[in-house]
Amino acid sequence: MNPVYYLYLAALLFTIGAAGVLIRRNAIVVFMCIELMLNACNLAFVTFSRLHGNLDGQIIAFFTMVVAAAEVVVGLAIIVTIFRTRHTASVDDASLMKL
């Protein structure tokens, strides 16, 4: 099987995730879409790792996971805080930075 299919799949997942970020308004779902994009990247990294025959790609994917975990923790904390004060998790409602 041609390794390029894994990359096609990664690109497809990434694009779907990006479209989700643009479409959804629930901050939590937006976050999930971002996670989806990160996972797509990880898939590409892992595929590259196998393609080139070394483990560096896997290391990068590993680091991505760690950073994603940190990001999720902080991001969800922010969402919880926003929800507490504004009683909504819609990203459209947090538009006060415009002024």
Binding site: N2, P3, L7, T15, H52
Partner: peptide, 25 residues
């Protein structure tokens, strides 16, 4: 945008000549 971006990505990947895995053995 999503469609365009996806097409761009896939076009880029399709252009790369990736035939075989080197393998992680």
């Amino acid at each position: 945008l999503g469609l365009g971006f996806g097409i761009l990505l896939i076009a880029g990947i399709g252009n790369a000549s990736l035939k075989e895995f080197n393998g992680l053995g």
